[in-house]
Write a protein that binds this DNA or RNA. Structure first.
Length: 690
DNA sequence: GCTAAGTCTTTTTTT
DNA sequence: AAGACTTAGC
């Protein structure tokens, strides 16, 4: 018997290298033990996982038995597309099977929502529960906070966002409140007793209104599978559970995986500890570092360290940066591509020059034949790109921005959605509270009273127009109440259009830039029309919000060429031929707000690593020398000097080339001047801390 | 009881 | 630069 027949290698696996194939084929047959794939940046992770899924299909696993957990909806779609392409190579039957889709592919949160709706009856949950996004949750927290009288304490009580952050951290890390306060929010520790009371009331409020927040989607899921019978039932339904971006899962998520797959059989997780960048959301590198030894026998580990993306020069620099990290699965990425050019450290005077430099480079590369879409500008915080956005708009260069303020978070969009949500569920206090106050002359007091009345009354909304409101508002209120009552009767998407019509005068009254916002409302109506019903629209929008904001520059058409602007977090998993990183400066990266502990600083270092490893061929790290202080009157000249990020100390400079822009005139006075400035600089740096 | 104006705090990354 | 809270005025 020849080797070939004993180990037949299906041709659809031909494109993989040895390690990738090893991962794809792991545990062929039924006895697939737990598998950890450490997949470095650009090592073909998605491809490997997609092959593994296709291989499972080839072995006869039904797509409905595969639970595929990814970080974002977009990642899930991409994965499924690839699986379908590979399955087409296996056989026509498998192609059809894959074409039918994977019902259980998505984010932890969206899969959680689906499971909970299905099992709602058995865990005492209303199957029609609504889902609050972060801002809704913060609003509810605020409501409760006021009701408990915590806002009028003599010493200032933490604000709604902080309260929610503390609550969320406690839930996601599964730590005690005391510990969470101690480690992450020491300045709020004095409020522990009040916070505990607040959180208890917050949970009760959610339950009274049949509302779940993001954390609940995981928490209820975890609670559900902590019941042995349900755990077995859910665990058996999914013969295979595959988790992407495992380094960014939190304690709660790993607990829930373990509950479903106690012995790890059928469990595959993929990740890269060097790219863990979500600890602010409770994610912990420990999940991936400790994964193998959770099981007996321990999980098999496969490392993918061959990089197919970047030039060796870029990889060498990125490896040198991440080598400074303290704890990780050691791996250095390698590549067989030609060396390429070193990453460039570009020194510019200020943010205005930074924007000008980026535009010049982007245009030059486009002249050289590189499409805008193959280029990206990355940054730590969404507002870092403001200058550049202005410059791009002025120069008529189309761009799309990822990350930062979402379309759905804009006040006017939230207003319309609040009315729509309230019309669906009049007991939704958060939506109602916001919706009712849209009427001029009605504030928190009247709104609260109306909601109390509705709560007390029997379900059904016949009495809405009769609610007590101040005299001058009567007519407006009756018109509004009638509209809200009528929305349920219209066929979708009529309600959104009627609502938009009603909202227009409010828009004029509330905002100076009403016409810009009006465009967003129309955009919302267009998005709404792509959903089959009001219910589906409202529930699915919270979990899968549209990606990019429709900017004033006008959203570029799909087939048009445009430049990508993105926060580093939103750039996860993506790649471009040329990447420019803005503000590679201490204070921005690491962010001033994240230098509290060594753990936070390490995460900022990984952030730089993630940014660098997005680049295939060209990488510019831009270092503005000074920053103007915002908030000063008129054309103030107050500024601070910044220095290159601490993650690229001098001893690593050999991995980079350096340049200044605009190029320094070789004038005799140049040196003297710059030295004088340097002395000045040191004094100012000290002054910053006075 | 509502709104508008003024003061003080917080300020990132996202499902 | 925005949001939360307080205070003054209608």
């Amino acid at each position: 018997m020849s080797d070939d027949t004993r180990c037949p290698r299906p041709t659809y696996l031909d494109g993989l290298n040895d390690a990738q194939r090893d991962a794809a084929l792991h545990g062929s047959g039924n006895a697939a033990g737990p598998l950890l794939i450490i997949a470095g940046a650009g090592s073909g992770k998605t491809n490997t996982l997609a092959h593994r899924v296709a291989h499972l299909l080839a072995e006869g696993v039904d797509p409905a038995q595969i639970l595929l957990l990814t970080f974002s909806r977009r990642a899930a779609d991409e994965m499924i597309r690839r699986v379908q392409r590979i399955a087409a190579k296996v056989s026509p039957r498998h192609a059809r099977l894959a074409q039918g889709g994977f019902p259980w592919a998505g984010t932890f949160h969206s899969v959680g929502a689906r499971l909970l709706r299905e099992f709602a009856g058995r865990i005492g949950l209303d199957p029609a529960f609504t889902i609050h996004d972060r801002e809704d949750s913060a609003d509810l927290m605020n409501l409760v906070r006021h009701e408990l009288g915590l806002s009028s304490k003599t010493r200032r009580f933490p604000m709604k966002g902080t309260c929610l952050a503390i609550y969320s951290a406690a839930v996601n890390t599964q730590n005690r409140l005391t510990d969470v306060l101690q480690t992450s929010f020491p300045w709020c520790a004095e409020w522990e007793a009040d916070l505990r009371q607040l959180f208890r009331a917050y949970v009760e409020a959610k339950q009274a209104q049949q509302v779940l927040d993001y954390d609940d989607l995981l928490l209820y899921w975890a609670q559900m599978v902590s019941e042995p019978d349900l755990a077995r039932e859910v665990g058996e339904r999914f013969r295979h559970v595959l988790v992407d971006e495992f380094q960014d899962t939190n304690h709660l998520q790993s607990a829930l995986l373990r509950a479903m797959k106690p012995d790890g059989r059928g469990l595959t997780v993929v990740g890269d500890d060097a790219q863990s960048i979500y600890s602010f959301r409770g994610a912990t590198v420990r999940n991936i570092l400790d994964f193998p030894d959770q099981f007996d026998p321990p999980a098999r580990r496969v490392t993918l360290d061959r990089n197919y993306r970047s030039t060796p020069s870029i990889l060498a620099a990125a490896n040198a940066v991440i080598a400074q990290a303290r704890e990780r699965f050691s791996k250095d990425l390698w590549s067989e591509r030609p060396a390429g050019e070193k990453p460039v450290l570009v020194s510019v005077r200020d943010e205005a020059d930074q924007a000008a430099y980026v535009v010049e480079q982007v245009l030059a590369r486009r002249e050289a034949g590189l499409r805008l879409k193959a280029q990206a500008v990355l940054f730590r915080a969404a507002h870092h790109s403001v200058r550049l956005e202005i410059e791009l708009t002025r120069r008529n260069i189309p761009f799309v921005k990822f990350g930062g303020l979402k379309f759905l978070e804009a006040a006017h969009v939230k207003d319309v959605l609040a009315v729509l949500r309230w019309s669906q569920n009049l007991r939704d206090r958060v939506a109602g509270f916001r919706a009712i106050q849209l009427l001029p002359g009605i504030g928190p007091k009247t709104a609260g009273r109306i909601l109390d009345n509705l709560q007390a009354a029997a379900p059904g909304c016949a009495l809405l127009p009769e609610q007590p409101v101040p005299e001058g508002v009567r007519d407006g209120w009756v018109a509004f109440a009638t509209l809200v009552e009528g929305l349920g009767g219209d066929t979708w998407p009529q309600p959104v259009e009627r609502l938009a019509q009603w909202y227009e005068p409010q828009l004029e009254r509330l905002f100076d830039d009403a016409h810009v916002r009006q465009a967003d409302i129309q955009q919302l109506a267009r998005i709404a029309a792509t959903y089959p019903s009001r219910e589906r629209f409202l529930t699915e929008l919270t979990l899968d919000p549209p990606d990019a904001t429709s900017d004033e520059s006008g959203a570029p058409l799909r087939d048009e060429d445009y430049l990508i602007l993105s926060t580093i977090h939103s750039a996860k998993g993506r790649e471009w031929s040329a990447v420019s990183l803005l503000n590679t400066v201490d204070g921005c990266l690491p962010s001033d707000l994240a230098t509290g502990s060594e753990r936070e600083i390490e995460e900022e270092m990984r952030l730089l690593y993630v940014a660098m490893t997005r680049a295939k061929d060209h990488l510019d790290l831009i270092v503005p020398q000074r920053f103007y202080i915002t908030g000063q009157s008129g054309m103030g000249d107050r500024h601070v000097y910044a220095s290159r990020t601490r993650f690229i100390p001098n001893r690593l400079c050999g991995h980079f080339s350096s340049r200044s822009w605009p190029s320094i005139e070789p004038a005799v006075t140049g040196d003297a001047q710059s030295r004088e400035r340097a002395i000045d600089l040191a004094a100012r740096m000290r002054d910053m801390w006075n």
